[in-house]
Every structure is written in C-alpha cells, then in structure tokens.
Design a protein around this nucleic acid. Structure first.
Length: 863
RNA sequence: GCCUGGAUGGCGGAACUGGUAGACGCAAGGGACUUAAAAUCCCUCGGUCGAAAGGCUGUGCGGGUUCGAUUCCCGCUCCAGGCACCA
C-alpha cells in the first residue's frame, strides 16, 4: 500500500539499503549478456559535489539503468581523480595534510553520491592518490621510458622568486603571483616529456573514425593537432657556416621574404647578436620576454614586437640578404622555432614589417589586380602568379609550392615538410600532491629507473608543506637520498611529480579490475569490458583529457597490453552548469550563501560591503559560484533533484542555474503519486492489459493508446539522450489521464489501469528509481525494479483514428481540417481546397500549385 | 588573438530528415474548493490592431535559396568553453 503522501527521504533510504544489501549493482564478466561499459568522468574530490557533478552523473545513471533494462551487462564504476593542486592550497590555508584533506573529502562526497541513488558498483571504487593506483602509473612510466616514449628537455615554467615556487598558469594573475603579487618570471628547468607527437598523425587519422563522437569534439582535436604541410627552408647566415631552418606553409613566397624571425628562446639569438652593436638591445628584449606570460592567449594577444639581431640571412632561392630578428610571435615549440617573414603575403608579417619599416616585396600577383608594394593596405594571401621569383616567375603559385620545395631539396637547402601544432606533453610538476616520478639521478650512471620491485615510490606522508606553496620533496632528504640501483653509489631521487592528467589517462582501464595486485590491469577483464561504450563528461575536456587518453591507449596497444586504439566508442559532452559570480572587494569570490540578496543591492554577509555580480561562468570551486545540491536533497530528496537536472535542459547544452523550477519537478512526482493512489486498489488485483486497442473503447482506448505512444516516444528520446522531452512525454500522459477523468472518461478497465501505472514506473525508473520502486512494490510488483525489462509498445495501439491537416495559402496558415486516418492524397487535397479559411484567401486568384505533405499539410500557391 | 559551440515568450526549453513556432515545465494573472491559508483543480498567458471574428508581425542582426526557413547558404553581433601547470 502506498502512503497517502509522497515522503521521499524515507523511501530513498529504504530502497538504497535494499539494493545495496542485494548487491543489485555489482557486476561481473558475463559471457551470456552483451556488455555495456558506461563511464562518467570521475570527479576531483573538492569536498562537496556541485550541480555539475549531479548533472553529469544523473545523465550517466539514467543511461546505465536504461541499458540494463534493455538487457545489457552494465559496468558503471566511480572513483576519484584525487591528486591535484587544490589539496595543497587547502593544506596551506587550513594547516592540514593534503592526504587527510583528500580522504575526508572523498568520504563526504561518496556519501553525497550514495544519497543520490546512483547505480554504481562501489566495489570498484578507486582513488588515484593511493599507492595501489599510482604504482602502476610509475610502472607504466618506466616502460615508456625504456621504449624511448619519455624524455627530458629544458623548458620554461612560471616562477615566483619571493615565494621560491613554480606557479600554475591559473596562479598567475596579470603577470603577477597570486600569493604575493610580485612579478612572475620564466625559469628554465629540466622536465619530463611524453612523445605524444609520435602519434600525431594516427590521432589525427582516427578523428574521422570515431562516429560515436560529437563532430565538434573531433574538429577541435584535429585543429589542436593542427597538421600543416609546407617546406623546411634553410637560410644561410652571413659570416657563419651554419644556417637557420625555417618552416613555412608558403614556400612559393620565399623570394618575398624581407626578414627572418627567430623565437626568443632560439639558441642562435644570443650567438648572432654577440659582439655586434645590437647585443645590448637583444639582451634587453630577451629580458623583457623572460617576464612575459607564456600562455598562448598572452602571446597571441600581445602586440607583435621584435629586435634586430645585427646579423643577416641569405635567401637560398633569390640569394638576397635579409635581416634576422627575434620576435615574440614565434614559438620555439612549433616548427623549427624560426620563420621567414613575407609581409606582402602574410598578415602577421605585414604588421611586423610595418612596425619595423621593412620592405614588403610582392611575389604573387593575383589575376585581375595589380598589387603594389607602396600602396598595399593588407597582405594578399590568395592565389596568383609568381613574379620577381627568379626562374619561378610566371608560374602558378600553387604549382610553385611543390616546384620550389623540389628545387630546394635538389640544392640541399630544404625539403617538403609537415608540421604539427601539437607539442609533446610536459608532465613534470614541481609539486607535492602527485605521483612521484620513479627516476633516480646518478652522477655515474645518469638517469636510472627505479627497479620494479621497489615500486611504488611512495609519497612521504611526513612531508610538511611549505607556506609559499613549493614542493617539500626537493628538500626532504629522507625522500631524495637514495643509492643508485645500478652502481650502489649515492644518488638523488627525482623530486618532481606527474601532471594529474596522467592518472585520468588510464583510470578507465583500472576499473575493469580495480583490485588486481599483480598487474596494471587484468587482461581478460579489459578484453571483456573495454572499450568504454559510452563516455560522458563536460565539454571543457574536449581536447586535453580526451586526447591524452587516446594517446595512452595507443601506447598500451603498442606495448601489446590492449588490442584496441580508441578507448571511448561513444562520447557525450554535456554542457556546463553555469552561474553568475559574486565578488566582494574585501573577501573576493563569494559562495551564494555568503551573499544577502534580500536588499536592492546584494550585500556580503561577512563585512556588509556591496557585492558585485559578475559574468555567468562555469561553476567552479575557485570562482565559488557553486550551488550545494545537499540543500535540494534535504528538501526534496534525490529523485526530484535528478528529475530536475534532466528536465531543465538537454544534456549537451549549458545550463544557467536557477532555483525556481525544482518545485515543479517535485509537484509532478506528487501528481504521479496521486495517480497511483487513485488506481492502486483496482490495479493491484489486475493483470496488465496486453490485448488489441480495437477491443477497448472510450477512456480505456484513449489511455491505452496514449500509454503506448508514450512508451515509444520515451524510448526514442532516451536513445538520443533527450531526457527532457522524454520526461515531458510522461507528463503529457499523466495530464491526459487526469483530463480524461475530468471529462468523465475515466479508466474503467483494471488491466488498462495496471498497464498505465506499470508503464509509468518502468519508464521513469531510470530517472526516479526510488519513487518508482515504491509504487511498483505497492502494486504487488516483486523484486528490484532496476532489474526489470524495458516496456515494449504495440504497433496496433499507436494508431490514431483521425489526422489533422494544416491548410496554408502561399505558405501562411489559414485553416485546419480533420480527416480520417486513411484519407488518400486526393481527398486531402480536395478537403484543403474546400476549407473555409483557405477559400477566403484564394478568391479571385489562380491556383498555381498545390503541395501536399501526406498526413500533415497542404500548401496552396495562388497568384 | 586562435579553435569550437550557442542565441527561440517574463524564465528553462520544444519543434527528430525544410512543413501548424512556443510541446512540457517555471513565473504571473483570474477563478473553484476552504472560516482562512497551504495543497489541489480549472482558465488565460509572444507582440500588436480589433468589441469579436479575425488580421498583421515574430525564433540575436543583415542578406539569400525555397511553394514553405528556428532548421540550409553568405556576412555580422553578443555570450560561453578550450588554448598545453585548474581539473
């Protein structure tokens, strides 16, 4: 029996316990059933779940439960992306240990997720900060090192001298340290890199073989990899034996080069300036560059500037001499770290030449136009015929690209070349809370990996964090003092940790056998479960995380550990949950509960100062524009919270949070509850009707038809992840039943009533599992609802008796006619031409054309 | 700056392959029930003209293709995400 009122908190706890003790969501490899691996991006354990998590995991849970009802053996795991900077920041702020802080957060977040009733197999839970997890990451790192997939090189980091610490890009605000506010400089450090560029071509090729991914994501990845074809051209240097290799996509314009520009870090810059009058200026420029932020955004928005090195380069085709500059718009990591400047045919070069008064010779003349160096307002980047280009003059510029590259190759001064924008993946972090890099530096033997039997290299738990945010590992002798595994002499352990993207690049494999102690994963388990059938997570991960995971899978494939290259067959990128930010002058970003919105101007509850309302942005802990779902859980329960998240917007769309509307979802559940109450007595004794529609009449017929139509619609909508419209469809069904009752056409047939309530329970069970289970049980339904089969619909029960045809005249709606469902085209046309509303607009005009869309619309064209 | 998306009533959204724009829900207004309130139920609800019937207009802006465009094409504007050390 159902209680008179819907009491979510009681019901939810009861069924969660019941499912838990029955092990309903535990899964094992089962060859009898088709497998389905559903994965949601695991969370960083920040302490509290936020609406973004609730949304992401609700979407995943609905799909997991739906697939299970459709007969799949569903793997649906959850865990924690537990290493990362916030733990260190919190540790400094609250004087706790990152580990203690992290594990506490995991405990409280696990509780919250459990309250939401997600169908996870909690036996598979993992946390990346445990030695059981990261030892396999270290093991893999060493294998990659042995295969040459890992190397070291010098590169720059943001460094704050007063704090003596490396800063993340996020920790640099307008070129200054977030902690002390002083200017940040670029410091060179030796760092570890993964050779992801080895796979650039393969990662690119497979972007077109991922039909289950949104095209926008593969497009973004293609652009990120950024393949370009062109040529490497070697310019000579006056007075020197060596030369400068430039990469260009426009070898056809080589004779139009009026300068060569090097990246500031290019090794030749100081060498070329040495001993000439430009030396001091070059030095000043490099000093300035060392203070400039190195994010792509900063580089590309900064004004193009450069400095003459005092040396000249020799054009290998024209033999001309051009000045060599160093410039802030040339990236050392891309191409060769040097470009040739062709102002007439490249806008960036045009701007640079304008600033430094460099000539801009025209070498490509477009058809029907005459470019003139003196009067050009912008670069010409289109096609044309080569001029002033030695023996290549008169040639079509596209043909010349190959011709010039071939010519250069013959002269040993260049060749055709491909370049990728993608750079190798730098993974060294000068931080504490991460996976220790399992390497030892020995003065005698060089770099030696930690022997496998010594893994894991554990993070020392007694390390006290430094107030400035620096890693304690570098000054913790008990950690770094080791003996060399090769020669036994004193050596130093690597004190850097890995980028946390490394952990998330293979966790999906570990879920298949999370407790495996002898290997990174159990190969049979991985062979059964992988690849992930459906991966769900925020769009913000469209490039980096997903690309790194694809790369890791390739590395493992090359190692022979897995036999597939792509980890995720289908991808759903959900939109972000956004909210406006609130800032107080004194206290910075404020949580919504720290703002008093009751006055005309919002007030900071800490100091009483007015609060300024900022842009609507992705909810994030650092911006504090987060909504705490526990408030909703306490008030409405998990089912209403889940229902609202799905109903508010389709998954791929961003969701601007508003508190209103949750009430409506709660109201809907209460409405369904009352519907169940109304029919429970008759339905409990009945068997669900499963006969022909034709055998029913009146309200029974309408309700039965509407129920089947709804079953069909909901299945179709869930299949394409349109949960909001699926829910709307059930709302319409419920409304129709109530409306029929109002009209005196209430359900008479007990079997139809039972079929209705059962169908609603089954259809809504992935969304509101506790609620539907309670009603199901009240009808006398046995067992766990999540284990039942998805309802089927009868084709004969979908048939309407009549159709509504819209009548347009010249594309404007003029009338509607109702016709028998089997009306043929001729009778539809005749009815439309006779429709009163249409006739008025046809008077005195000639009917030129009649377009009939069968069963839907007639458009009469008159003139 | 570059790459990728998005924009529809007061609000969230719907319209699946070009075919009734605004389903479903929120908010608002009116009514019923109630001593009253809550809950519930019913009605109205893009703008504009009109007493009504009905007309005109309307999917960020400007063009185009089409019998017909929220949907396709071209050119913009604004917003969001990513840009390699936030995750």
């Amino acid at each position: 029996m159902l209680s008179d009122t819907y009491n979510p908190l009681e019901i939810e706890e009861k069924w969660q316990k019941s499912w838990d003790s029955d092990g309903v969501f535990q899964v094992h490899e089962d060859r009898e059933k088709p497998k389905y691996y559903l994965l949601e991006m695991f969370p960083y354990p920040s302490g509290k779940i936020h609406m973004g998590h609730v949304r992401n995991y609700t979407i995943g849970d609905v799909v997991a439960r739906y697939k299970r009802m459709r007969g799949f053996n569903v793997l649906h795991p959850m865990g924690w992306d537990a290493f990362g900077m916030p733990a260190e920041n919190a540790a400094i702020q609250n004087n706790t240990h990152p580990a203690a802080w992290t594990y506490e957060n995991i405990d409280s977040m696990r509780k919250q997720l459990k309250r939401l009733g997600f169908s996870y197999d909690w036996d598979r839970e993992l946390a990346t900060c445990t030695p059981e997890y990261y030892r396999w990451e270290q093991w893999l790192f060493i294998r990659m090192f042995e295969k040459g997939m890992v190397y070291r090189k010098e590169s720059f980091v943001n460094f704050c001298d007063p704090c003596q610490t490396v800063l993340a890009n996020e920790q640099v605000e307008d070129g200054a340290c977030w902690r002390c506010g002083r200017e940040v400089r670029q410091k060179k450090l030796w760092q570890w890199y993964f050779r992801i560029t080895d796979y650039a071509q393969d990662l690119l090729d497979y972007c077109d073989r991922l039909p289950g991914w949104p095209e926008k994501v593969t497009t973004m990845q293609k652009n990120w990899i950024g393949k370009s074809t062109g040529a490497r051209i070697r310019f000579g240097i006056e007075g020197r034996e060596d030369g400068i290799d430039v990469f260009t996509t426009r070898p056809d314009t080589v004779c139009g080069a009026s300068f060569v520009c090097l990246a500031p870090e290019h090794p030749l810059v100081t060498a070329l300036a040495a001993g000439n009058t430009q030396a001091p200026e070059v030095e000043a420029f490099l000093g300035k560059m060392a203070r400039q932020e190195r994010t792509a955004k900063a580089i590309e928005t900064a004004e193009k500037e450069g400095v003459f090195t005092g040396s000249y380069a020799i054009n290998p085709v024209s033999g001309g001499s051009v000045p060599i500059y160093a410039g802030n718009f040339v990236l050392m990591e891309y191409g060769t770290g040097a470009v040739m400047g062709v102002p007439a045919h490249d806008q960036r070069d045009f701007d640079f030449a304008a600033r430094y008064g460099l000539p801009r010779p025209v070498v490509v003349q477009p058809a029907g136009e005459k470019l003139d160096e003196a009067t050009m307002q912008e670069a010409w980047t289109g096609p044309g015929t080569l001029v002033n280009s030695e023996s290549f003059s008169g040639m079509d510029n596209v043909a010349a690209q190959t011709a010039i590259a071939d010519w250069l190759q013959a002269k040993n001064a260049g060749e055709k070349a491909e370049r990728f924008r993608l750079r190798d993946w730098g993974i060294s972090r000068q931080r504490y809370w991460g996976t220790p890099i399992p390497m030892i530096h020995c003065d005698t033997c060089g770099i030696v990996p930690v022997p496998e039997e010594d893994l894991p290299v554990r993070l020392p738990e007694d390390a006290g964090l430094l107030a400035n945010g620096g890693s304690p590992l570098g000054s913790l002798a008990s950690f770094y003092e080791v003996t060399c595994p090769k020669c036994g002499k004193k050596a130093r352990r690597d004190t850097d940790t890995m980028d946390t993207f490394v952990e998330s690049s293979w966790y999906f494999l570990r879920y298949c056998s999370p407790k495996e102690e002898r290997a990174i994963f159990n190969r049979e388990a991985v062979a059964y479960w992988m690849p992930v059938d459906q991966y769900i997570g925020g769009v913000e991960h469209a490039v980096m995380h997903l690309l790194y995971s694809r790369y890791f899978t390739r590395v493992l494939e090359a190692e022979g550990l897995v036999d597939f290259k792509e980890p995720f067959t289908n991808l759903l990128t959900q939109g972000m949950v956004c909210k406006e930010t609130t800032t107080c002058k004194e206290h910075g970003f404020l949580y919504p509960e720290e703002v008093d919105f009751s006055k005309d101007t919002p007030i900071c509850t800490k100091c009483g100062n007015p609060v300024s309302i900022g842009r609507v942005e992705k909810m994030s802990k650092s911006k504090r524009n987060v909504v705490d779902p526990t408030l909703l859980l306490d008030r409405y329960g998990a089912d209403t919270t889940r229902l609202f998240c799905l109903f508010a917007a389709p998954p791929e769309r961003d969701l601007e949070w508003s508190d209103t509307g949750v009430e409506g979802s709660f109201r809907f559940l209460n409405r369904v509850w009352r519907l169940a109450l109304r029919y429970q007595d008759v339905a409990r004794k009945a068997v669900a009707y499963n006969g022909e529609l034709a055998a029913l009449s009146g309200g029974d017929r309408d309700v039965f038809r509407k129920t089947h139509q709804t079953i069909k619609k909901v299945a179709e909508d869930v299949d394409r992840f349109h949960f909001n419209t699926a829910i709307s469809a059930v709302m319409e069904l419920v409304n129709a039943v109530f409306a029929a009752g109002e009209k005196g056409e209430d359900i008479q047939h007990a079997g139809v009533a039972r079929h209705l309530i059962e169908s609603i329970c089954l259809m809504l069970s992935p969304v509101v599992p506790h609620f539907t289970q309670e009603i199901w049980a009240a009808l006398g339904g046995e067992g766990a609802l999540p284990e039942k089969a998805w309802p089927r619909w009868r084709e004969d029960a979908l048939q309407e008796d009549s159709i509504l045809v819209v009548v347009q005249v010249n594309g404007k709606l003029r009338d509607r006619v109702t016709l028998p469902a089997d009306a043929d085209e001729e009778s539809i046309k005749a009815a439309a031409l006779a429709a009163e509303g249409a006739v008025r607009f046809m008077e005195g005009k000639e009917v030129k054309k009649v377009i009939v869309v069968k069963g839907k619309l007639v458009n009469i064209v008159v003139g």
